[in-house]
């Protein structure tokens, strides 16, 4: 069967690679090319302008703010989401009280929680954003309403209207709608960890916290790591854009408190008619994404554990 093996492999890989090249690599190259032009996006004519767009970008305060917010999301979002998801998944699968017949098990009603956590994943991100926008409404929103009913009339934040809170309001929405997916993902990972490990650890008198850090987390590390990459892409990409675009003041406000790189790309391209400048910001976004992926890959590198 050795004959023609490489031909076979090449035949197998050619199509996906070609698709990848056409739909991913080629647009990247194109946008890098356009970032050196003055293309408006509204007419087919344009000319080369050298590095003008880049000089403009480096002097653009809004760009730096967008970058800063994107980086904050990139650092904070995965930590909160994955941390919560790990905690929930652990409680659902392993953290429960010991019952007869099984050494480890989830808390009571864990099957229900699993489904409940997954629910937001079923809703489209746009619907989630609009629902939360209603909830955050300072006058008639659910959150301030709840605060009033418990007698906190003095505490009526403007939520999305407050520059100090707006980005956190948006982070909360992103966490809310993604955490369920990772609960399910980590649950699946945990289910494949042999029960004997836990039994042995419990016999040795290990606490739940110890079992989590010494058994669950190391054996789940690969999954967590890919979850990290996925959350990073989400924080830099379409989901963050959608939520900010739909929910925030302006959008991107108040006073640029929530603007993120993909939103700025969108505004430059489709509101301001400066498609070339938008591609320049897009190139910056590409650099950030690549740097993030490189860091995660390097930090996360570990020997695979066989079990």
């Amino acid at each position: 069967m050795q004959h023609g093996k490489y031909r076979f492999i090449i035949g197998f890989l050619a199509a996906p690679l070609a698709l990848y090249a056409v739909f991913v690599i080629w647009p990247f190259i194109q946008s890098i090319y356009y970032s050196f032009t003055d293309w408006t996006g509204l007419s087919p004519e344009f000319s080369m302008v050298g590095f003008a767009n880049y000089t403009k970008m480096f002097q653009d305060e809004v760009f730096w703010k967008s970058l800063q917010h994107s980086v904050v999301l990139l650092l904070v979002l995965p930590v909160i989401t994955l941390g919560l998801a790990l905690f929930f998944a652990f409680m659902i699968n392993v953290g429960g009280r010991r019952r007869k017949g099984a050494a480890v098990g989830g808390v009571r009603g864990s099957g229900f929680y699993k489904i409940a956590y997954f629910f937001p994943q079923v809703l489209s991100i746009a619907i989630v954003a609009i629902l939360f926008q209603f909830a955050y409404d300072p006058a008639q929103g659910m959150i301030n309403g709840a605060l009033r009913t418990v007698g906190l009339d003095g505490l009526q934040p403007n939520w999305l209207g407050d520059p100090g809170l707006a980005l956190w309001c948006i982070t909360a929405v992103l966490v809310w709608c993604t955490v369920g997916f990772f609960v399910v993902l980590f649950s699946a990972g945990m289910a494949s960890i042999p029960r004997d490990f836990y039994e042995a650890a419990l016999l040795d008198g290990a606490s739940r916290v110890t079992t989590f850090f010494r058994i669950t987390l190391p054996l789940l590390w690969d999954t967590v790591q890919s979850g990290w990459v996925y959350m990073g892409i989400l924080a830099l990409g379409a989901e963050a854009f959608a939520v900010v675009h739909i929910m925030s003041i302006g959008p991107g406000g108040p006073d640029y408190a929530t603007t993120v790189l993909p939103l700025y790309v969108y505004q430059a391209a489709f509101r301001d008619g400066q498609a070339a400048y938008a591609t320049t910001i897009g190139v910056a976004l590409l650099v950030v994404t690549l740097a993030f992926a490189a860091v995660v890959m390097r930090l996360g590198r570990r020997e695979r554990l066989e079990f």
């Binding site: 955050y136 300072p138 006058a139 301030n144 009526q156 403007n158 939520w159 209207g161 407050d162 108040p254």
Partner: peptide, 11 residues
Amino acid sequence: LPGTPGLDHRG
């Protein structure tokens, strides 16, 4: 009106 900075046009 209190809360105005967080209201949209329809609100």
